[in-house]
Design a binder for these strands. Structure first.
Lengths: 251, 251
DNA sequence: ACGCGTTTTTCATTGACTGGAAGGATCGTC
DNA sequence: GACGATCCTTCCAGTCAATGAAAAACGCGT
């Protein structure tokens, strides 16, 4: 795909938006997409007409409802979320803590769903957002069960440090991952923020492959991972069953 | 936008997918998008490389995770959902029934969020799906508060009938809409399926405009709309407050 | 009214795009 | 294994949609 094709330019325009740049002027959009202003203007007009972009009163562009609608057909995120939500609800009702669901895409995780009650600890995640695999509970589960070449690529770094508790030494992370697989769930203690601990478990599909991870995120100072794990594992098993997975077995 | 532009063809390809056609062969994709097979093949390759489409083992195409990620930035759906979810959770915990959030796009509603416990009545909605405005609870709320020209267009029909209870006569629908505005909430009794009744209330933004509607859907035979309304109204007011709306006032 | 930055339009040029045709791949049937 | 049908992938001569520099229009602040 050459960066001179129309499709690549249109996609670059869609990719110009992120959580910190949810609204863009035409000039900003052109600059971030790496194309000329008149070209961005013309392509934007088509995208607006179709609904992929919307233009607000100030003349700024933002992502449109239609794009989200079409994106809602993606089986790996909203489709998965549909199956997982009842079990995540149950987990939320029982624990009243943040419940999260994530999938792996290449070397990163993508947050698919999050249930956050109003008393829950603040988390840095955003549904639809991406994150590194090596620090969060869900990330550790996804990494521990990822193909070997993915694990090697992640372990080859860079592994950013978020807190003093983030595991960034490859050898140590390897042992953490082996522990996740042996134990059947992951604990991430103050590895992303100093006040949060998460417990995560793997979600499997019909073929038995780990396709997602579900977790709860609690206050670090009141965290009791060993007590929480059965709840998370139960939710993960429920979701797995909904995805057609067989009964859980020891790995 | 001419149907001969590249952008329109790419968008037509994305639009070729729907809930009943979540996976498509190249030939189906080309046919549904109205373009030639070689053109679809080339554009699909670019879309796959970027992540907007994914290709599965059978060679079929489906919507890709990246498109959903970008779509998650759309303020009118997932952004709104973020603010609404805690209040919807509360409503779900109290009622244990289906909770839905929808927005209006032109002459239709789009379901933005749905919380469905496992004991709740089956509903026909899909997050990201569209529906007519004149039958569901959320649709009636959105229509009742829509600009006059939108209301006139919807009332001009066609108004499909789903059940014997669907209001399809324009004069009668007008009175229903006036009732929704006067009362402050909408009741849709067996208007979509024979076994479901929904109670819906308006969600307002900072400017006081109705930007969404929230509802619960319950079994028709056990429905008591007047008892349920306060719960729905409370959730709607909570969401409105989260969106920056002022205190509720009599309309 | 003026200056400046942003947006929108113009237009000659051309490179990206096109689809019919050909070839390859897959699958089911005999 | 041969054959036919369908789908997928590539080729290529011709076309036309796309391009960006430049100009015009617009909006805002002083």
């Amino acid at each position: 795909m050459s960066s001179s094709s129309v499709t690549s330019k249109v996609l670059a325009m869609l990719g110009a938006f992120d959580a910190d740049h949810a609204e863009l002027t035409l000039s900003e959009l052109a600059r971030r997409a790496g194309i000329s202003v008149p070209t961005a203007h013309r392509r934007a007009a088509e995208l607006v007409e179709w609904g992929a972009l919307e233009r607000v009163g100030s003349g700024r562009y933002r992502i449109g409802l239609r794009l989200w609608e079409v994106g809602s057909l993606a089986p790996r995120a909203p489709g998965l979320r549909e199956s997982a939500l009842p079990f995540m609800e149950d987990l939320y009702v029982v624990t009243r803590q943040n419940v999260q669901l994530a999938v792996r895409d290449d070397l990163e995780l993508v947050f698919v769903e999050r249930i956050a009650g109003r008393q829950a600890v603040p988390v840095l995640t955003r549904v639809g957002g991406r994150f590194h695999l090596h620090a969060t509970g869900v990330g550790l589960v996804l990494l521990a069960h990822a193909p070997a070449e993915i694990q090697e690529q992640v372990l080859a770094g860079p592994l950013p440090r978020y807190t003093a508790g983030t595991v960034v030494e490859p050898d140590r992370l390897r042992r953490v991952l082996a522990d996740v697989r042996r134990r059947g769930y992951a604990v991430s203690e103050q590895a992303v923020t100093d006040d949060a601990t998460s417990v995560a478990a793997p979600v499997r599909d019909r073929a038995g492959d780990v396709v997602a991870a579900v977790s709860i995120v609690v206050q670090a100072r009141s965290a009791k991972p060993r007590e929480l794990a059965p709840y998370v594992l139960t939710a993960a098993q429920g979701i797995s069953r909904a995805l057609g997975a067989g009964p859980p077995s020891t790995e």
